[in-house]
Amino acid sequence: MLRLTDVSVSYDGVPAVRDASLELPDGQVLAVLGPSGCGKSTLLRAVAGLEPLVAGAIAWDGADLSRVPTHKRGFALMFQDGQLFNHLTVARNIGYALRLRRASGIVDRVGELLALVGLEGYADRLPATLSGGERQRVALARCLAVRPRLLLLDEPLSALDTGLRQRLASDLREILTAEGITALMVTHDHEEAFTVADRLAVMRAGEIVQQGGIDEVWRAPADAETALFLGYARVLDGPVRLAVRRSAFRVDPEGSLRGTVLEARVTPEQVRVVVDVEDVGEVDAVAPLGQHPAAGQHVRLSLDSTRTAVVGG
């Protein structure tokens, strides 16, 4: 089990991570979610032993790691762009850590890993001949080769295009659960975090602002900024602050809220409208296809409370 206690990291005196505390039980996947530049990659590098701590402690199963160099931590680190060794074939990349440990049965294990990541027959290819998605699969296999006690993933899917990213995210989830891997992933993409992780920590400006199980965080974002970062469309001020998804309001003749349409746009799934609601202000709403409310038209809206979250609750 990984435990971070009040970890701080600085670059040339400028703090990049402040007082970060985290817990990651064995067999779980924790995603650290935050905008770029929030210090999440630095946190990951600190766990890997690549950045010295200014304060705090990182411990594995209760043993402090501060004096353990990177190569003796028994972790594996996967970079955003894979960082495959370009002078080695796919098989030699994957077998790298096994050869370092003079393990036996390298060929079999490499074959097993190639099958696991769906790249049978790629053993003799050079990294330069692979697509972005294939490179990441090889990088993942290379990390898994020696069954690391902790897998560190630095934006593993960000360099890929959208369709591929979604497919690889669910593959990644499948592989991690199948192998029972404990993993710490940093990402700026909440969809990716939801697909891959069990737990979520939200990071902003060097600090961890919220953490917990995916649905805990999702149901009760700590503050407005967190809510927006988690994919909520707006945060409405009122007696309670309410984070609403784009589809929380629907155009509904029976609805209890009244408003004026400001803007309407047809998408393949539904009509998206922006409505100025009395006593509430501007909100996003959806209408079924076929209805086409025009700007200036008065409409009624209903609220689906399952698509909202109370902020700071």
Binding site: L50, H71, F79, Q83, F85, C143
Partner: peptide, 23 residues
């Protein structure tokens, strides 16, 4: 980063030099 990736996979500084930096 390739050197860091190697170190994270368990390569000692000398092994990182031999297998990643030197090539």
């Amino acid at each position: 980063r390739p050197g860091e990736a190697a170190a994270a996979l368990g390569a000692s500084p000398a092994q990182v030099f031999r297998t990643v930096t030197w090539p």
